[in-house]
Design a protein around this nucleic acid. Sequence first.
DNA 1: GCGACAG
DNA 2: ATCTTGTCGC
Length: 321
Amino acid sequence: MCACRTDTTEDIASLVYQATSQIPEGMVTTYGDIATALGDRVASRAVGEILSKNEHPLIVPCHRVVYSTGEVGWYGGRDKGSERKIELLEQEGVHIVGGKVQDFATRRFRDFCIDPVLKWMRDEQDRMAAQVIEEDTFGKLEYIAGLDVSYEGENAFAAIVLMDWEHMKMVEERTIQCKITFPYIPTFLSYREAPAIRRLIEKRPGAVYLIDGQGVLHPRGAGIASRIGVGLDIPTVGAAKSVLVGSVQDVDADSSPILLDGRIRGWALRQGSKATYVSVGHRVSLDTATRICSRALKHGIPQPLRRAHELANRARREAST
DNA sequence: GCGACAG
DNA sequence: ATCTTGTCGC
Ligand SMILES: [Mg+2]
């Protein structure tokens, strides 16, 4: 057992390195085991990405982290294969037979002592979800805004585009640049993008904010749109380019309900090959959220979101010039 | 090779 | 999300 809990939100990467450093010589673990120690196995790929950038290969023994199948996996770059990794493990008494760890089950170390931050985040998501209001609690609709983020490594460019609801004309646009170190982990997107997005929002009466990602159409009902909505107490809509949870009833229809736990929790809006998956963020009914996105839809994407996406990309390209 | 868990 | 030539579709 272990009861470590960091006082501040520690960087995920340093927790991964902490865990990796706890693997004893002669033992191995998996990316999923480290993710589980972080609090959620869905982070396994993020763990792999972090370890692939390990700058101290022998001090932080990432060669002791293998696939859940027992396969060794690559080391020192995908192009370099697993030769070196096998060599290091053999030196430590871990035998590799047919590309797999021999006696994998007994060699497997899982007794990590790191702060399970993702568990605390899940708890927070549960609390957020309980605060979501799925009704229209804003005045007359005057504006819709779209928000998105573009990346160049840890350099992030967030953009907002505000449009007039009646004439669907652009009213305002703005971008910011910032560093984002929190990795992309499915179901935890808001911890990566919400801080940047929040900085762009100045509460404007009559505005509904469309956010690139899910609202309540999330395993815990706390997608990025809901988290931002509840956090800032503003009307938000989740408008995603793909599905996270739930099933689209009619995949071919221009408009189809998305069911989750036997209830309609979202709508799929399609234009040709492109689709937008709409769900309530906060303080908006599903009906209103869907109407807003439908009317603003262009090329399968609500216009303010499409423009915010383009704007964020433009800001990124212009910055690297 | 398939299926795939937002960005 | 990004890596990226030529390709595909409206
Ligand atoms: Mg995005």
